[in-house]
Design a protein around this nucleic acid. Sequence first.
DNA 1: TACTCTTATGGTAACGATAACATAGGCCAT
DNA 2: ATGGCCTATGTTATCGTTACCATAAGAGTA
Lengths: 338, 338
Amino acid sequence: MSNDRKTPTMADIARVLGVSPMTVSRAFKADSLVSPETREAILKAAEELGYVFDSTAANLRSQKSGFVAVTIPSINNANFADTVGGLSDTLAKRDMQILLGYTNYDIDEEERLIEQLLRRKPQAIVVTGGTHTERARRLLQTVAIPVIETWDIPADPIGHYVGFSNRAVMRDMVDHFVSLGCRRIAFIGGDVARDSRGSERRLGFVAAMQAHGLDATRLIAAGSPPISMREGANAMAKLIDLYPDTEAVVCVSDLAAYGALTECRRLGVPVPERFFIGGFGNYEIGEVCVPTLTTINVFAREIGVRTAQLILDILDDIQPAGDVGISPQLIVRESSRR
Amino acid sequence: MSNDRKTPTMADIARVLGVSPMTVSRAFKADSLVSPETREAILKAAEELGYVFDSTAANLRSQKSGFVAVTIPSINNANFADTVGGLSDTLAKRDMQILLGYTNYDIDEEERLIEQLLRRKPQAIVVTGGTHTERARRLLQTVAIPVIETWDIPADPIGHYVGFSNRAVMRDMVDHFVSLGCRRIAFIGGDVARDSRGSERRLGFVAAMQAHGLDATRLIAAGSPPISMREGANAMAKLIDLYPDTEAVVCVSDLAAYGALTECRRLGVPVPERFFIGGFGNYEIGEVCVPTLTTINVFAREIGVRTAQLILDILDDIQPAGDVGISPQLIVRESSRR
DNA sequence: TACTCTTATGGTAACGATAACATAGGCCAT
DNA sequence: ATGGCCTATGTTATCGTTACCATAAGAGTA
């Protein structure tokens, strides 16, 4: 073959048709002024030449990347996946694309990631949580694009936020168990260090217990966050061993709660007759398992959709809606019904 | 403040220090020749000025984007998430970044996505499955970068592939049940149309049954793929109703299998005493639930890692390992033990 | 008829980095 | 002392697109 030359550019199309490169450029923008016949000829020639539009060059010139950078703790988590789905779908309507990175629940890794993502010149950046390294904060404060923190209500927001208080939300769960007459309530979560949302929930649990004048020392550390189902199961075994008279267990996530549930089943301990169990995050497993799981719906997808809308408003210079508070909702299911 | 000028460039740093922009550029590449003092001064000045490296410009000039484009059916699937994780981690070691898109199990959407992703000039593209639209195939054939199809062994590969035969793999599962003495075996899967991997598994089930001279008509369509746990449960109810004498059930995924399991529990049908159940994908749920689930491990993360290695080898001009066949492994657990 | 306005198109320069080549100075061996 | 080599740096042009400004032709108006 003789056509193994380098990939064609707009200039090649222009030459073939005897028009200027500028006209070719216009033909690729839906709204710009080109006669229908010219546009059609250009698009046809492009297809024939195997032309592929080069966003890199376009972005450099126009100083708009079409990217929104997003960092999440883990790709392997249905909640964050839902948020990303909501973000992605909403931004796609405006031809914006997500540039995704995983921090692995590590703020140092987050710092590296943020630095790397900013080099791609995103038009906005979305981070999960409100806890960052000093340097990461500085980077985000300095950068001249919208910054949105999600899944949290930061004490000192960098820019905007779309989220809820992981601490306050535990109040509803504890109140629920207390209203059922429970007094000896335990918490299963991860080791403190890494997952700040998880530790906020633990703190929220403690605060809520104390508000009821109850003892808040039955805290089982199940391992390094995020906690797996297996670790939830192990923690439940430990809990039954340490505090056999516990009446209810609050878990940091539905996955841990499901693990706890299976451990009870294996040990022949009936739920909800012997223990009540509550989870967090409204994962699919919670509405299918036996018994179904009491949980908290945090509207993960909604967080993504609202974040995307906020970004689009800011970029459109529409008076931004400001920060968005999400109100998580307690869902009572079989695992905590008498 | 007076420093609200536009964001600084390498030229600004160069001016401040009285060096050439080229030296600044070199200071940002780890391996290039700059004296340690000069580099240090440059990096310090960059930090002070709030300089952020502009990949867009660098990519345009060097004609290397550092992107690998990846399409997966859904972000909300632990198997594909594992593959992406393997890809991402392996590519990160070489400072390459993933550009991810979701097809929603729709090959028309995949076509749009591929076109959009190619505009970003990725250095390789990874797609899930070997079934594409005509135009998508053409785009992938024309583009001058490595193309890798995964999670499948395509009949007519476009470039390379890293995967396994979704059809052949069902043979092991059927053999397993037959070896346990089962003859009346059913299959729970999605409607045929969308998910080609799922339909391949259904076809593989039928072929394996016929190879044993067994009836392969107990096929329950559980809804539009991907099948949820809930749909798996509904399908199980239907199966028990239609074919009460069934001895074993093969499910298109562990999620469907888990749903089937819970339905049995709710109906008071004991597993494995009354039914054997087999899943697919080795999801976490399968090793925690009661009883644990017999399944097939497809080494999802391994697919990602091997794909990334293949890409790196090709880009390094190392003799590529060629196509990679993954050998899924049957894992027998409690749900199919006498 | 002259003048404005709109539509369709062209010309030029620029976005911010770096590939490719050039050069200056120091060190070493013969 | 001389040539060769290595290190550190500079100069120039370019990647492919589009912002910005200019212009020509036709349509509409007074």
